[in-house]
Amino acid sequence: MPPSTSPTLRQRRLGAELRKLREHAGLTATAAAALLGLKQGQISSIEAGRYPVGADRVRTFARSYSCADEPLVEALASMTGGRKRGWWDDYREYLPVGLIDLAELEHHATALRVALVIHMPALLQTTDHARALFREVVPPMRQYEIEHRLTHRMKRQEILHRATPTPYTAVIHESALRMGFGGAVVSRAQLQHLVEMSELPNVCVRVIPFGHVPFPGTGQSVDYLAGPVPRLDTVQLDTHHGCEFLDAEAQLTKYRSVLDRMERGALEPSPSRHLIHKLAKEL
């Protein structure tokens, strides 16, 4: 299979992890190529995510690099194969690549944890609420761009309803519940939808009320996507310039700690539902 000129984030992550294994073994790309019977350029292309590798080859790489972490090796093997088309690929012509990568990561994640201060979680938004948000984007989007964003966002939500739904925990500050995007009718429907979604067995919604605890972090929206092993977790941050993805060990540790603190400071699910319901009735 020919090299890919535009590898996905998932492909690049696999290559980066293979590079880490090689470097941990103290091997240069040239030495690794000689050990594995490949060209140095092939090693570089594989580590850049541009050249597909199979599961058996990943296991061979790991063995040659003296990696004895079997769960990690098998997790990496599960990320192999050629460029497998997903529903998100239909949007590559219309949306920023970060949103495409995020949808693919969510699809493969074993669990999701999110924390938000201003906005509702994307996977728990109604269509009308999301449309109201997209209308406020700077610079303004054309109507067809808004519709592409809407259908993409709604498709992302399917991971919460599939045969084996993804476990999902959302910590939401009370300020996000009171923002009122779209007006009273849209906001009330959004809050009611949030309550309904929180009753799904795989969805946990917890609210941090005003004045409850000191707030950890900067207030930035955080998505934590769990991989098959902790080393393959990914953090996604929302920024004005798009999605930012983090996967360094120190970064993962930091955001796990931030999310843990936020969850400890939040109400339990039942009181959270009661508060959300109360706010909906006030609209």
Rank of each mutant, 00 (worst) to 15 (best):
L105Q: 08
T166Q: 11
L133D: 02
A122H: 02
Y91A: 11
Y144R: 15
R153I: 07
G81P: 02
I118M: 13
Q125S: 10
K155S: 15
R131P: 00
S44C: 08
Q157M: 13
H129K: 01
M120H: 05
D56S: 10
S78N: 13
L160F: 03
W87K: 07
A62S: 12
C67P: 10
Q143T: 15
R57D: 12
P121W: 13
A122N: 05
S44D: 08
G49K: 04
E136L: 13
P139F: 11
V73S: 01
L72T: 12
L112H: 04
D90C: 03
P96Q: 12
R85N: 11
V53E: 04
V171D: 03
E93I: 05
A132G: 07
A48R: 11
S45Q: 15
P121I: 10
G54I: 04
T151H: 14
V138S: 14
G180V: 05
A55R: 00
L160V: 02
L76M: 03
E47T: 00
A132N: 00
S66L: 15
Y91M: 09
G182Q: 05
K155T: 11
K155P: 06
I172M: 06
L102Y: 06
R156N: 02
V186S: 06
R83T: 08
P165A: 03
A55I: 02
P167I: 05
G183W: 05
P140F: 00
A77Y: 09
A77C: 09
C67T: 10
L124S: 10
S64N: 03
R63D: 03
R83Y: 11
I43K: 07
E74C: 06
L102Q: 08
G98T: 04
P121R: 07
V97Q: 14
D101S: 10
E104M: 11
A77E: 11
L99I: 12
A77N: 06
I100S: 02
H148N: 14
H119M: 13
A122I: 01
P52F: 04
H173Q: 14
A77H: 10
M179W: 03
I159H: 04
R59C: 01
R153L: 03
Q125Y: 08
E74Q: 11
P140H: 01
R162I: 12
L160N: 04
L105S: 05
H108W: 13
H108Y: 14
L95A: 10
E136R: 13
Y168W: 07
I46H: 08
P121T: 06
H152D: 07
W87T: 01
P167A: 07
G182P: 06
Q125H: 08
Y144C: 06
L150D: 11
S175D: 10
